[in-house]
Design a protein around this nucleic acid. Structure first.
Lengths: 263, 263
DNA sequence: AAGTGGTCTAGACCACTTT
DNA sequence: AAGTGGTCTAGACCACTTC
């Protein structure tokens, strides 16, 4: 009577009646709203609705899936909590994007000790294709030796070199990424990944250490050899927990710090 | 007709009728469930329900506040998301406590590169009362020169000194904290704070930097002077966003790392 | 005025735990 | 069997945005 969509199984009977669902088995066994959430996530992953776009209204989705609006609401609540979508009262629900001031600071944790920086400069040192080192291949879940794009860059704040980063991206996904596009593109790099390569980062895991600057790093950051630096190793994931970026940053923390909230 | 509790103002009319609330004004203007949430938080803060204890059931709270169970539910949902309470199906909702394996890793971010450590040792170097330095006083929101308790300790994993920590606690709150109690107490320090001093930490903010070991740190951590160390400055807060702990840790990250999830 | 998300209620049933 | 949190529905109204 209720969930008419073929695959959905309503284990919890609603309203009236004993509420046993349709025909034979209920193989999945999870709350309806979780199944709805999974369906919506699939649509996000498949690109049916792209970052920044409006997704169907709750009423519309409720009709489509033959469930109540409240159930769709709870599904979207969780997606919103996970930053996959953004609700806007009166307007609708939008697919999350990296092209917003709102989402900038999610992945940028280095803050100036004083006020905000006045200027920001991005200097690309090197962009090249190479065969994935074993460690990188393992983290990206690809075969060792597969093609990856390697990027090396230095970011400066108020003229002071502060971040030295090396990135490894799967060549399969980021075909055609060149130094020129990287330099000419204004705004966050994740915005470029999203717009030009259809890859939206939703989550990242970091490992942080204190290390000493070697000869190369010291020169690029204009500091003495052995200056203590913050090493931040990051693996970023897109939909379906698929790793799509490995990044190793060296942060000069003389006038900056990595902020973190524990809650 | 609806919210009969004196201070509550129901801006959104429910069920039937135009639903204007009681007498004159509606000064607060916030959703009912937020008001309920605030009331419950007050009870937590005042110690009406202590960490580990069972709070009244949703039905009971709904009756007490003269709102529907769904409204109480949404209030508790948020408190649960903020880790102030813990839901247990069939049993009830409990006040969060630091005496659980579940909540241990919330504030302990340093992980071994390999598997977990086999042994853990806690060596207390020093415990004394002193007048709060200006910086500490500012962070703790007390007067400069007020009494604070200072703790210095070294934690070792598998026999290797790894964490050197200095803590400053408001003397007002942590009266009677001695080195003996600190040493004899088994389990996490936040558990001791909670049980012996009725102070439950709910949130913390950290600033992370890379620094060089000075003479003193190097000796205590058994490393060479100038070894790069992770400096973690933490301010912890209890109910009402009141700061109650300042901590400065120096982490040796040769075989450990600080893990962080960005989402 | 119409459409969207946001709040609130009331009631039913399920899953889990304890008595 | 009784009590608790967990799910689901249906309907009403509010706040905000757009037409």
């Amino acid at each position: 009577m209720n969930s008419a969509i073929s695959h959905l199984t309503n284990n919890n009977a609603p309203g009236a009646g004993t509420g046993t669902s349709a025909a034979g088995a209920s193989p999945t066994f999870s709350p309806l709203y979780q199944q709805i959430k999974a369906l919506i996530t699939q649509s996000l992953q498949s690109g049916e609705w792209k970052p920044g776009e409006l997704i169907p209204s709750e009423v519309e989705l409720a009709n489509r899936f033959k469930v109540s609006q409240g159930t769709v609401r709870k599904a979207i609540d969780e997606l919103s909590a996970e930053n996959l979508v953004v609700r806007r009262q009166g307007k609708g629900t939008f697919v999350a994007t990296h092209h917003e001031a709102r989402s900038q600071f999610r992945f940028l944790r280095l803050m100036s000790d004083a006020g905000d920086a006045l200027s920001h400069e991005n200097r690309v040192i090197e962009v090249k294709r190479l065969r994935a080192p074993a460690e990188v291949a393992r983290l990206l879940d690809i075969k060792s030796g597969d093609s990856v794009i390697f990027i090396k860059r230095v970011q400066s704040f108020d003229g002071a070199p502060t971040i030295l980063e090396e990135l490894w991206l799967p060549g399969m996904i980021f075909k055609g990424l060149t130094a020129e596009r990287l330099v000419e593109y204004k705004g966050p790099m994740y915005g470029l990944f999203e717009t030009e390569f259809g890859t939206h980062m939703i989550r990242a895991a970091e490992r942080i250490r204190a290390v000493s600057a070697d000869q190369d790093s010291a020169e690029l950051l204009s500091v003495a050899v052995n200056t203590p630096l913050l090493s931040v190793e990051r693996v970023s994931f897109t939909y379906g927990d698929k790793p799509v970026e490995v990044r190793r940053g060296l942060y000069l923390t003389d006038h900056h710090h990595y902020r973190n909230e524990l809650s």
